[in-house]
């Protein structure tokens, strides 16, 4: 694959490359309904500008991020930490061509715009809450 033969690494579990396997993937809820796309990922804090302790445990993924962070990822800048829409990693139950959650999308804060549009507009139009015929 590369022109230099580096030694192969061994892994004790499933390997995920953030950009390759997680970023920009569709996330489905427990019923298979699309909930959001992975706009960014938050990992446990790493001291910035300070020497890292080689014995300290490596960071882990804390949350998937969705919403305003997409605009800043695309156009630059940074939303304040309090405005990040976080979906804790513990809700993720499977990773394939999409990520699957173990909970329902209505339980997530990150999908509030969907509920807002449903309650204020779409749900109020006649037929909006019925199956198509």
């Amino acid at each position: 694959m590369s022109d230099t033969d580096y030694p192969e690494e061994t892994y004790a579990g499933r390997v995920l490359d953030a950009d390759l396997h997680l970023f920009d993937r569709q996330v489905l809820d427990v019923d298979g309904e699309p909930a959001f796309a992975v706009d960014d990922i938050e990992i446990s804090d790493v001291p910035i500008g300070l020497p890292l302790d080689p014995a300290a445990p490596a960071p882990v993924i804390e949350s998937l991020l969705s919403g305003p962070v997409l605009a800043t990822r695309t156009f630059g800048g940074r939303p304040p930490s309090s405005r990040l829409e976080r979906i804790p990693w513990r809700h993720v139950s499977d990773i394939g061509t999409a990520l699957t959650l173990g909970i329902h999308s209505d339980e997530l804060d990150a999908t509030w715009t969907e509920r807002w549009v449903r309650d204020r507009i779409i749900g109020r139009i006649p037929g909006g809450r019925h199956d198509p015929e």
Binding site: Y11, G13, R14, V15, D17, V60, V92, G102
Partner: peptide
């Protein structure tokens, strides 16, 4: 740095074990 590699071998959470940062590409 073009990507960050994780390995799911950490402490089991609710549904999936936690994803530990293994290295950088």
């Amino acid at each position: 740095l073009v990507d960050v590699r994780f390995v799911i071998d950490g402490a089991p959470g609710q549904l999936l074990a936690s994803a530990r940062l293994h290295g950088i590409i």
